[in-house]
Amino acid sequence: MTVRSRPLSPHLQIYRWTITMAMSIAHRATGIANYAGTLLLVLWLGAAAIGQEALNPVNDLFASWFGQLVLFAYTWSLLHHMLGGLRHFIWDFTLGMEPGQREALAWANLVASIVLTLLVWTVFVWVG
């Protein structure tokens, strides 16, 4: 009896990493992270609905360095995921599908999400 080996599927060690692959993974990760961030928003809204006594510790948590870091990351996650959705919407019209265009859109998604996050925090948090 001969044992036949099954063909192996390609995996990440075989594929060459590309920006579109990284942005695809980041899009999925930010989608998951947005669930956790939305729970923080629900926590804040729930505390606000209960009253000032419940809201104070939540505001203190969000005002701490760790809270600010989490909120900054949540802002980036929301913007990155939204821009990734717009990139996919553009692709739904079969626009930007050429290799150079796909990479340009992926880089634009990353750069724009960083710039917009810094802009939002500059206007609404650091300066305001």
Rank of each mutant, 00 (worst) to 15 (best):
R4C: 08
I32D: 04
L45D: 03
I25K: 14
I14F: 04
F66A: 13
P7T: 06
S5Y: 05
G128K: 09
E103F: 07
Q101R: 11
I114L: 14
A108V: 02
M1D: 03
F124M: 10
L86H: 09
P7I: 07
L45I: 09
L43F: 02
P7F: 08
V111F: 10
I14Q: 14
E98R: 13
V125P: 07
L12P: 03
I50A: 04
L86G: 13
A26V: 14
V123R: 06
L71T: 05
R87W: 06
G31T: 05
N56P: 00
M97H: 07
A33S: 10
L41Y: 06
L69S: 15
R28G: 09
W76T: 06
A36G: 12
L110K: 00
L118Q: 10
T38H: 00
W126V: 11
L105C: 02
Q52E: 14
L79H: 11
F72C: 00
G85R: 04
G46R: 00
A26T: 11
F66S: 08
S5W: 02
H80P: 01
A47H: 06
G46V: 15
A36Y: 15
G31P: 07
R87F: 02
H11Y: 00
A112V: 07
A54V: 02
R4Q: 11
T2D: 08
S64L: 04
L39T: 09
M82Y: 15
T20D: 15
H11Q: 07
G100F: 06
I25F: 07
I50D: 05
L39E: 05
W65Q: 11
Q68G: 12
R102C: 00
A47D: 01
L12S: 05
